[in-house]
Amino acid sequence: MKVTRVLAVMMVALTLGFVSCKPKDADIKAAVEQAVAALPDAAGATIEVKDGVATISGIFKDEAAKAAAEAAAKAVKGVKSVINNGTIEAPVVAAPVEITADDPLTKSVADATKDFPTVKAEVKDGVVTLTGEITKPNLIKLMQSVNALKPKKVDNQLTVK
């Protein structure tokens, strides 16, 4: 009887001891979330905690932001280890520049240069070559028109009078 009572007391003491010394996963999770949320570029991160092991997931701007979140999580009391499943944002790839094919480009360059009889234009592989002479105000008008036709390049060899 005596032994059983002592055991029971010990068990209660042990349980209490565990509860008071070991922070609960939910509390750790809240603390890690708070620490990570304080970082810049960590807006998309999510945290899970199980048995003191924190798992980070979500998309980070770069490696540095991912590492910073891991360091912040490790510094939280009660975190035994950190599994960093964060991924890095794919860089935004710009769409390639659209270049007009030679046939429609030749036609629209002819339209653009028609009113400047001293200008000759040639189109080859998307490159518009302008030769001849032109006045400065007309050069700007012509360049504005030709640049809007989606050429690959404008090779302006015009002499400005």
Binding site: L139, M143, N147, A148, K150, K152, K153, V154, N156, L158
Partner: peptide, 10 residues
């Protein structure tokens, strides 16, 4: 006078 041929301003 836009002679460099390194910009297409649209």
């Amino acid at each position: 006078n836009f002679v460099s041929g390194d910009l297409v301003l649209n």
